[in-house]
Design a protein around this nucleic acid. Structure first.
Lengths: 218, 218
DNA sequence: CTGAGCCTCTCTGTATACAGAAACGGTCGC
DNA sequence: GCGACCGTTTCTGTATACAGAGAGGCTCAG
């Protein structure tokens, strides 16, 4: 795709996700343009994309960083578990041997990342993302990726994972393995159930983590 | 919001939904700009929005009208029933008396529209849209509207409704009434069940309609 | 001292101009 | 006659210029 518009998109998204632009921050096109070293036009493009992904919201004229913390986190996880479970069920009826092998390889990477004495959270997150993305691809439904991009806030995933103890990390890996078995059996309801549990466990991990971290409490 | 960008959005969306721009059509910015009487800038904005809503897709450089007909229609309805049922369940726990009264009023309009000797499909569609929108609002979940906008293709709704016989129209009204009862009882599972059935019945109506309409068969 | 009105200033929305890339057609060589 | 290469044309991406709306501050009157 385009060069400048992608730079702007990545930069602004980074500002939001890193917390440098906290929720409620007014995003001024000119200021962002200067920061990205591009003109206002690609910045506008980037802001439209981010608006569609609900990272920013309009208030009157003018964009500001959306406050996802004010949202009902349980609702977010409920929607995500519903949609990802659906994706898993659909994938179960369509997945082929090659994709299953890829999933096993990805989960092997994930296990390797947490096997080290000090678990490599970054590698875990990357493998986890790849695992879910691969299942999404196997579901082969054009609209599912767009929907999930509205529901999966990477900061939430990261915060959740960073609070995982070793046992929780290992449980994640085990659930992934279980998911692969369900997919290999082409059993949609099994896959749905495992994925639902997987996401809902992540939800409770997130809530526990938030509760024990006063700075992050909403 | 802005004037020209909305004009462009409505115009282009209209072109797509009316079939004047069939799937696969290359959408040229300059051409659209001339057609809408605005410059390319608001047209670009409109195209970004439509891209986010999956009405158009990029291929390389250049946008073209997405081919939703190639999509798995059952999958679309499955997702929609899942999400709308969720919205109904959530609304059931939150709805207040005022909103319930509004829903009853809207459904009364709907019943009036189909009571006439020759049912007023246009009024039916409008009331139906308002009914679902009101429940969505009662669910009070910021992301649900964005998700549903990805799933509800108005041409599908219209084609389904136009094929409804009087009995199907009356069943729709009756299901709406049942939904209001479930919401009034603040019973999320009841509301979820009724909404699921409501959408799934619409799915079968759509399939039957498509099957009996060779020109529309995918 | 407070409130209202006006003025200014900034920011967005829109239009236009320019550059680069990709597609199309024509022509030349084989 | 067919294929490949090159030129042209067109379209998108980007930058900039301008106008209108809105917010904020300042001043003046009560």
């Amino acid at each position: 795709m385009s060069r400048a518009a992608d730079i702007a998109y990545a930069e602004i998204r980074g500002l939001i996700l890193s917390g440098q632009a906290p929720p409620g921050t007014r995003l001024k096109e000119e200021e962002l343009a200067a920061r990205c070293g591009v003109s206002r036009t690609p910045v506008r493009d980037a802001l439209r994309r981010l608006e569609g992904e609900l990272y920013v919201v309009r208030n009157g004229s003018g964009m500001q960083v959306a406050d996802w913390r004010a949202e009902d986190v349980e609702e977010l996880f409920a929607l995500r578990s519903m949609v990802e479970a659906h994706a898993a069920a659909r994938a179960a009826t369509r997945i082929d041997a090659e994709a299953l092998e890829e999933l096993r390889a990805i989960n092997a990477r994930l296990e390797a990342a947490i096997a080290r004495p000090s678990a490599d959270i970054q590698a875990f997150l990357e493998a986890n993302r790849a695992f879910h993305a691969r299942i999404l691809a196997a579901a082969a439904s054009p609209r599912l990726p767009a929907i999930l991009s509205l529901l999966v806030e990477q900061p939430v995933v990261r915060r959740t994972a960073q609070r995982y103890g070793r046992d929780a990390l290992e449980r994640s890996a085990a659930e992934h393995a279980e998911l692969v078995r369900a997919l290999a059996a082409h059993d949609p309801e099994w896959a749905r159930a495992v994925m639902t549990g997987h996401i809902r466990r992540a939800y409770h991990a997130f809530v526990d983590a938030s509760g024990s971290d006063p700075a992050r409490a909403t």
